[in-house]
Nucleic acid binder design. Structure first.
Lengths: 137, 137
DNA sequence: CGGAATCCTTGTAGATACTG
DNA sequence: CAGTATCTACAAGGATTCCG
């Protein structure tokens, strides 16, 4: 397919027209995916998530959870006990997404080396004269 | 390095623990995906991209293109003619990603309605009583 | 225990103007 | 035509603290 689209590129559609962006906007958050993965094993508690993800702040956990809940990707169940106990669980919809995410993971695994090399090569080719003494990794 | 350092907060846990994040970090950009899609049809020129994506600025196009090039997802070919002519093309690696992206698209198509409804329901349930004072729509 | 509110730092993106 | 440079704005995210 070496077609030279010389001028036929107008078909490229509008920005938000493609549903791909919808998915990514929803999943692009730094923590969304990790929460989905962490919750994939079954119902999980707030604190378990907080401790399991290791690096997430309470704030971001809450916010991301809210967004996922809002989009119907996780369900929030409050147990009216004392102390309070709230469990989050993936909805079927989110479980499908999880499967799809694994395909992305697969792609990443397959090419991460190639990509890392590309980066290194690119950086090297562009830093060579700029690195008098900086020694960027 | 202007962190407060009130203690030993700089654990900086390996955020890239899961490869999923690598992919998303690389694709999460607002324009990355659209560029990949636009370039999927074959070699495409800078201006064609700029005009095709409709909404992207020169700066962002350049930056995103650079990142994609750096990661080895697009190749940049400069034709030493006058006026200058530069063509961008997806690498095989990126084409695989494009396929994977389509699976995401598929998921999105299937559930976009459900998600929209979830949002509406969530918003309704959370705004109804908040509108008493704030007046938020 | 589960959150909400606050403050602050940074990255991402837009607009504009200039260059090879 | 294909960029680069600069300046600014806004939102994502981190840290901390208070509340139910």
């Amino acid at each position: 397919m070496s077609q030279r689209n010389t001028g036929v590129t107008s078909q490229v559609v509008n920005a938000q027209a493609c549903p791909v962006r919808e998915v990514l906007d929803r999943v692009a958050g730094k923590w969304s995916v990790q929460i989905l993965v962490a919750a994939a094993h079954g119902p999980i508690r707030f604190t378990e998530l907080e401790r399991g993800i290791e690096g997430i702040s309470r704030r971001m956990l809450t916010l991301t959870l809210r967004n996922l809940e809002r989009d119907g990707l996780v369900s929030r169940t409050v147990h009216p006990t004392v102390p309070p106990k709230v469990e989050y669980e993936l909805t079927p919809v989110a479980q499908e997404l999880h499967e799809t995410l694994q395909r992305l993971t697969d792609w990443s695994e397959r090419h991460r080396v190639h990509i890392a090399e590309s980066r290194a090569a690119y950086d090297a080719a562009h830093d060579t004269e700029a690195t008098a003494a900086s020694g960027r990794s």
